[in-house]
Structure formats: structure tokens, C-alpha cells
Simulated scan of single mutants.
Amino acid sequence: MTLPWADAPWWRAVVERTTAGPTDPVTHVTTWDPTWLPWAVLAVGLVLVAVPELWRATRILVTFVHELGHAAVGILVGRRFTGFVVRADMSGHAVTVGKPRGPGLELTTWAGYPAPAVIGAGLVWTALTGWAPAALGAVALICLLSLVFVRSWSTAGTTLLVGAVAGVLWWWRGDARSAGVLLAVAVLLLLGAWRHWFAVAGSPKGSDPAVLARLTGWPGWWWVGTFLLVIAGASAAAGWLLWPVLRW
């Protein structure tokens, strides 16, 4: 089936900026030139998390993904997403409306802490398989749609900034540049997920595990453990995906 607007210039421009880029025929991953570039990108992501001054500025992105994780799962289980707030101190909240108890609310509450690691692993895959431009276009679109649900000026600023950067990178397409940015963000999200996990493991009171304990009767440490399993699994998957690039 051919779309009615398939020959329109604007649609051809969208397609050109969204299709998958070339990958190496042997490794089936993005070709990096020079070959040390992936190591440099990984180092940038590590520095963003390890240096306290930089982490204070970039951790809001981890919180942003955390809250959108609540929202996305809430929508998937049939709840109505009404708004979200993110703050630079790693705090925030997303509001969904639906049944006051039950698996839907429990899944929605649980989804926040694993979300940055899962998205980080997904970004590694997109960066290494030529789909980085498409992923940036999707991020820009998600941020645009999310503006309807922001409930603070700081949240609006974060959403606009992330969406604008993704949109600019998508429009002025450069496969290696897009892949490098996504890979650095993936490292930030993966390591940031670990930092958030250690924070909640040390003090789970008043956080998502405590809410899950009230909803289910299962102790908070159980839910902290489930977060650990998912974050560790996502990190292992990201490492497995990166191995062909770093090895070569």
C-alpha cells in the first residue's frame, strides 16, 4: 500500500533522515572511523556520571527517563497518563489515573528504576546497528508529545532541550555523529541507573519500593532486588552488543 503523500518532498526528507545507515558486512554494526572512537565515546559517558559537577547537571536526564518509564508502562497497562515532573536532585513523579490497586498500578510503579537501564541498552543497539538517526527522530517526537503532560517549568525546559537536541541531530543527519551521541547517552543512562539503584537500595523509605511494599505486601528489599536483576541484565546485554565494536 502506497501512502498518499509518499512523493511529497517533506515525506522524502523524513524518510532520508530516518532510514537505517550502513553497517559493516562482517560485524553487522556501525563502522567507526577512527576505530578508537567508540572508546572515546564510552569515556565521555563515564565522565558524565563519575565527575560530581557533571553528574549534577546530567542526572536529570536519568530522572526524565525514569518518569517516562512510569508513564509508558502505565499507558500500556491501560492507565491514563496525566502529567509528570522531573527535578535536578533525582526526584520527580509521574501521575497515572486508573484502579487504585492491582497489577496495572504495581507494574506502573515498578517501571521507573529499570527504565533508564533498559532504554540505555536499547540505545546501544540502535547506535551499533545503523538506526541512530531513526532513534533520534523518535526521541524528538516523544519529547514533543510529552510537552502536553509537563507540570513544571523545569520539566518543560528539560523536555524542550532533549527534544531540540535530538531533532537537530536527526535533521542534520550524520550517522557516525548520531551513533556517538546515542552511545554516550546510553552509557550515561546505564551508569545512572546503577547510581539511582544504589541510592534507593540505601534508603528505600518513601520511594517506589516502599510504595510497592504497601501495594503488594512484599517487602521493599524484594523490589529493590528485582530492579537489580533488570539493571544488571540490561548492562550485560549492552556489554555483549558492544563487544564486537570494542574487540575490533
Results as ranks from 00 to 15, higher is better:
Ala156Gly: 15
Trp170Ile: 10
Leu105Phe: 13
Pro116Asn: 03
Gly163Met: 07
Leu161Gly: 04
Ser91Gly: 14
Thr159Phe: 05
Leu141Asn: 00
Gly202Leu: 05
Ile119Ser: 03
Ala156Asn: 04
Asp89Tyr: 11
His93Leu: 13
Ala135Leu: 10
Leu147Gln: 13
Trp110His: 06
Thr109Tyr: 09
Gly130Asp: 07
Pro204Trp: 00
His196Gly: 07
Ser207Trp: 01
Pro114Met: 09
Val95Trp: 09
Gly137Pro: 05
Ala201Arg: 10
Ser91His: 14
Thr159Lys: 06
Cys143Thr: 07
Val139Ile: 15
Ala115Asn: 03
Val124Met: 08
Ala176Trp: 03
Ala193Val: 12
Ala138Gln: 00
Pro100Ala: 10
Val150Lys: 03
Trp125Ile: 08
Thr158Arg: 01
Ala166Leu: 08
Ala115Gln: 02
Leu169His: 03
Gly104Phe: 02
Glu106Gly: 06
Ala176Arg: 15
Gly102Leu: 15
Leu161Tyr: 00
Thr129Phe: 05
Pro133Trp: 08
Ala117Gly: 02
Leu141His: 00
Leu191Gln: 07
Arg87Val: 03
Cys143Phe: 00
Leu169Lys: 01
Leu182Asp: 01
Trp110Pro: 04
Ala132Gln: 07
Ala121Ile: 07
Trp153Ser: 12
Gly130Ala: 08
Leu188Glu: 09
Leu144Gly: 12
Val181Asp: 02
Arg87Asp: 12
Gly137Val: 05
Leu169Thr: 01
Gly202Met: 14
Gly167Ile: 02
Val181His: 02
Val181Tyr: 05
Val165Phe: 11
Leu105Pro: 04
